Amino acid sequence: MTLLKRFTAAALLLLLTTTAAFAASPINTLEKSGLFGGYEPTGIALHGYDTVAYFTESKPVEGSDQFTTQWQEATWKFASQEHLDLFTGNPEKYAPQYGGYCAYGVAQDSLVKIEVDNWSIVDGKLYLNYDDKLQGKWEQDIPKFISDADQKFEGLLSAE
């Protein structure tokens, strides 16, 4: 086997095994890394954005290192003590569905990172998506995608 083929095979194996290892985390903390353009877990939920702000301010707001808590093996950041208190009082109410993975992706059998600007609140629950294109697909049949994702999410976590 040539050196290039060995390197390519090793790189592909590394990419596949690291993606699988990270995908099983119950909370999405994936951030883009320099290594092969892949994603690595940072331990920080929602790229450091305040999950409560989606509900109280109807927009993504950056969290602060001053207001943090640990929940479900991830660090959650908040813009204020009030938001931190709301979250710690009822994290299930404010945490995004499917651990913050792309809701459309979960409905399609994939655990995918998100962008904080692609979101919706449906029946009091926060759903995030990968990008504008998938957000548009998500919006075409939200009830169906929620039903599909609800059935698949736990299996996706345990399959890894």
Rank of each mutant, 00 (worst) to 15 (best):
T17K: 04
S64T: 10
P96V: 06
D50C: 08
W71A: 06
I27Q: 14
Y54D: 05
Y49T: 07
K133F: 07
T18M: 09
H47C: 05
N129E: 14
N90Q: 13
W76A: 00
Q81V: 09
N90T: 12
E115R: 08
G43N: 12
K93R: 15
A11K: 12
Q72R: 15
Y94V: 00
F87I: 07
L128G: 04
Q66Y: 05
F55N: 02
P91M: 13
S64K: 14
T88A: 00
T2C: 10
K32W: 10
F87H: 09
H83I: 08
D50I: 07
Y94E: 00
D123N: 14
N118L: 02
A20W: 15
V52R: 09
G63F: 02
W71Y: 15
G63C: 10
N90G: 05
S33H: 12
D50K: 06
Y104A: 10
A149I: 08
Y49Q: 06
L30D: 01
G63V: 00
L128I: 11
N129W: 05
K113T: 07
S33T: 15
Y39H: 10
H83K: 11
T75V: 06
S64F: 00
L157H: 03
S33L: 03
I27P: 12
L30S: 06
I142A: 01
E115I: 04
N90C: 02
K77F: 01
I146S: 00
A9W: 05
H83W: 02
N90H: 13
F78P: 04
A20H: 12
D50Y: 05
F36R: 04
Y39D: 07
D65I: 04
L16H: 12
L3N: 10
T18E: 11
P143I: 03
K125L: 04
V122L: 01
Q70T: 14
L16R: 11
E82L: 14
F7L: 11
G34F: 09
A53I: 08
T19H: 09
L15Q: 11
N129A: 04
G34R: 03
L12C: 10
S158L: 12
T88F: 09
